[in-house]
Design a protein around this nucleic acid. Structure first.
Length: 420
DNA sequence: TCTGGGGTCCTAGGACCC
DNA sequence: TCTGGGGTCCTAGGACCC
């Protein structure tokens, strides 16, 4: 009985290396939107002490001086490479859960008994590397939480093959003893503080506590973690690509925005994008939330952050309905005199596009229900936005500084790499 | 000067019911 | 002046993940 976790090594940085062999052994960092902070680092960059999430401006000078290579994020490219990796994995085992852009759980239960899981995993690793250029680590263990521990052990011990089995009690115990509590999957900053206070410092400490007591003092979530550390299986492989429960479109602004006239079209852009995503999921929503906030890092200026949720009597995925709701939500939360740094739209309460739920009363904002109209707009805008809504910002709103983006090597004809 | 974006799950507490 | 007990459902916000 085993699961495996496949984890791409420094995924974004590895992607950037695929078509740039000259970057081998060179420190690489990839930045968030607005080139705000570091969201990925190659091994060399990690060794330089660049921390995950650190603001770029704080490390820029030192990093560049040491000949580091920096990239703005190129999610179109990373997404395409991720899909290729996942595709290969799905060819090896029938049940794969794509957990994130750079991680997947594999169900090894489906394999024959006495199957050599270690060599099989080494083979998977070789093929993924050959076919995509992406190096992966593979951790094998009885449950998800322990596969995460296995991946940590590969990093900690610097396992040369990047594949590790944690299948017998002794190996597991040894790994847990070397794992500090904050590295355990599901234990974040808050829980680490709490647990340290009561003398729980390693994964092994946590595993030795009675799960029922953990439930009483902490939560069911942590109870599950404890059970998994003890070898029980609480979380299953979920390969059901069921639709999302929430859609968020939000951005930090390159420059602060302090008047409604400027903010409104920006929020409209988010609403339009959110509605597009919703339609591509073949869902409708009946709740639209809008939020705004100032920068939590600026303690010299007054801060304000608020969220307003608008319920819709009838589910919709028509951009015009979402725009009306967005406007309705934004007006009461906007306050003049604040420098807003970020805003966003959140869609909730989804229902299937096909099912129709009519309202008992007449909806004053009767949904437009013109699916053909939206379909045409989606088709026209598929490659590049050509049709805008009147309330949008048509200036291709993007005060985002992203000057260091690599080409869309694999998804755009005009940016394909050339071979001389 | 400059600090990301997109998700999931759980829980406490309010609103409401009989 | 005195004001119950036991539920369900929903939502906002917290904690966590990558």
């Amino acid at each position: 009985m085993a699961f495996a976790l496949v984890d791409c090594e420094s995924f974004y940085a590895s992607c950037e290396r695929i078509f740039r062999p000259d970057l081998k052994n060179i420190p690489i960092v990839v930045l968030s939107n607005n080139d705000g902070c570091v969201i990925a680092r190659s091994t060399e960059a990690k060794k330089m002490g660049i921390r995950m999430g650190v603001p770029w401006f704080k490390v820029r000078e030192n990093f560049l001086k040491k000949n580091g290579q920096v990239f703005s994020s190129n999610f179109t490219f990373y997404g395409d490479i991720s899909a290729r990796v996942m595709n290969i994995l799905e060819g090896f085992v029938p049940r794969v859960e794509i957990y994130s852009i750079d991680e997947a759980f594999l169900d090894f239960d489906t394999l024959k008994q006495n199957y050599d899981l270690y060599n099989f995993s080494c083979h998977i690793r070789t093929i993924v590397r050959q076919w995509t250029g992406i190096p992966v680590r593979i951790g094998i263990a009885p449950n998800k939480t322990l596969t995460k521990i296995a991946i940590n052990e590969i990093k900690r011990r610097n396992v040369p093959t990047s594949v590790l089995c944690l299948l017998n009690e002794k190996e597991i115990r040894n790994a847990l003893a070397h794992t500090s509590i904050n590295k355990v999957w599901g234990v974040g900053r808050r829980l680490t503080e709490h647990l340290n206070k009561v003398g729980i410092n390693t994964a092994l400490d946590l595993a030795q506590i009675n799960p029922q007591n953990i439930r009483k003092k902490f939560s069911v979530v942590l109870e599950r973690t404890v059970r998994e550390l003890r070898g029980e299986r609480c979380l299953n492989i979920d390969d059901d690509i069921s639709s999302k429960k929430q859609i968020v479109v939000s951005r930090s602004f390159g420059q602060r925005i302090s008047n409604l006239k400027e903010l409104r079209p920006v929020v409209s852009n988010f609403a339009v994008r959110a509605a597009e995503k919703l339609r591509s999921e073949k869902q409708k929503c009946s709740q639209v939330s809008v939020f705004v906030r100032t920068s939590p890092f600026n303690n010299k200026k007054p801060q304000h952050s608020d969220l307003r949720t608008i319920g819709l009597l009838t589910p919709t995925n028509d951009t015009r309905d979402i725009l009306i709701a967005a406007k309705k939500g934004l007006l009461p939360i906007f306050r003049p005199g604040y420098d807003y740094a970020k805003a966003g739209i959140i869609l909730n309460k989804f229902s299937d596009e096909q099912t129709k739920q009519y309202s008992l009363f007449k909806d004053p904002n009767e949904p437009k229900e013109n699916t053909k109209f939206m379909k045409y707009i989606d088709q026209m805008n598929a490659y590049e936005t050509q049709i805008y809504f009147a309330s949008q910002n048509t200036k291709k709103w993007s005060p985002m500084k992203q000057n260091m983006t690599s080409p869309k090597y694999t998804t755009n004809w005009y940016e394909l790499p050339l071979v001389n």
